[in-house]
Design a protein around this nucleic acid. Structure first.
Lengths: 210, 210
DNA sequence: GTCTATAAATGGATAGAC
DNA sequence: GTCTATCCATTTATAGAC
């Protein structure tokens, strides 16, 4: 039954992990820069310093390589997101600081290109949307909700409150990015972050007569 | 020299406006359904019941046809948006009604596909982003700002206030649409609209001690 | 023997010209 | 309508490396 397999499986040579990494890194960069259709397997292989055949050996098809590249980048971004913790200070300053970290995260070119890819190719790889939501969006909202709790802010539902504040923070700066218009300056963004915090704090701390 | 051209210039035939409309309509539908690259000029011509040559005669190139299709659809959407006027009733009900009209507008399949196209192909046709902003986003925000003024709500800057409320309304329902996840139900959306209105009204009407 | 690089070939689709 | 040139995903052929 196994006259041909001496040890277990990798008789001659195991697939080279370094090659796999190089292909994956090249795919991440090229897909992010040029999109799926405009990126050829030839270009990926060339950029990885390897051959097209090796790329196919490791990933099977262009679609699988694409999904693997997005997942890898998603995980890399998650590692970055770990500095979204509770900042010190009184509530207003703490929320503003969190807002800055959040916007720096989602306006980072890598995050933008990954988000664009997931949205643009969501029909080709429908699992990526759910993966991104579970790995990036939900955790961020949960962290902010936890911070709102710790700050003892009088909200009924911390997750909903966090969603509101994140929506306010994200919408205005993201719009010009999506449409290819001139972006907000750092100053404008800082003012925008603080204004959103003030709006929420005002609403949350309203004296409720209900 | 002109044995074949009886009248003056348009020797063979003048460009047929009906053909042009048919091509434009087919292009709008196909680009919206399948995106730019997945839509071939052959498919557009076939769907329009005409020949590829006629399409090239009228629009010159695939890129120009694409831009023309987006502009046409943008104008069509604008006509639809005219029901974003001041609803009757007290402020909370009026804002909620406006919110429903707004979300119905931006969640309409035509609006979604147009927005997706503009974002996805913003490098191919960079002018479309600014056009969409000027023709759709800004007018909507201005209308809501005007309504906030008419309702005599105590906000410092009606345009900023309108932007906040629109951001809250839009963010949560749009996220699953962009990522290809299950959408919010009509009930959830209604509750979400009212919650956003209550948040803003609470913040705007806070007793300011400054 | 199994991996790899190089190269060429297959098969299909498409923009644009005539 | 047909033709042409181009591009691309995927496979196959060939020869060398561990």
């Amino acid at each position: 039954m196994q006259s041909k397999a001496p040890s277990s499986r990798s008789a001659g040579r195991p697939p080279d992990p370094a090659k796999r990494s190089a292909i994956l890194a090249a795919a991440q960069r090229l897909f992010a820069e040029k999109g799926f259709t405009a990126t050829s397997m030839d270009a990926v292989a060339r950029a990885a310093g390897t051959s097209k055949l090796t790329a196919y050996r490791h990933f099977g098809s262009k679609d699988e390589l694409f999904a693997s590249a997005i997942v890898a980048r998603c995980n890399a971004m998650l590692a970055q997101a770990s500095d979204l913790t509770l900042p010190p200070g009184e509530p207003r300053a703490a929320l503003i600081e969190f807002g800055h970290a959040f916007l720096a995260l989602i306006l980072h070119p890598d995050a933008l290109s990954m988000h664009r890819l997931i949205v643009a190719e969501r029909e080709r790889s429908p699992q990526l949307g759910g993966l991104f939501h579970a790995a990036a969006i939900l955790p961020t909202q949960q962290r902010l909700a936890r911070i709102i709790e710790r700050l003892a802010l009088p909200v009924d539902d911390p997750m909903l409150a966090a969603g509101d504040l994140l929506a306010l923070w994200r919408s205005k700066p993201m719009m010009p990015v999506e449409l290819g218009l001139p972006r907000m300056t750092g100053e404008d963004i800082a003012a925008h972050i603080a204004r959103a915090v003030d709006l929420c704090l005002a609403a949350w701390t309203v004296d409720r007569r209900g």
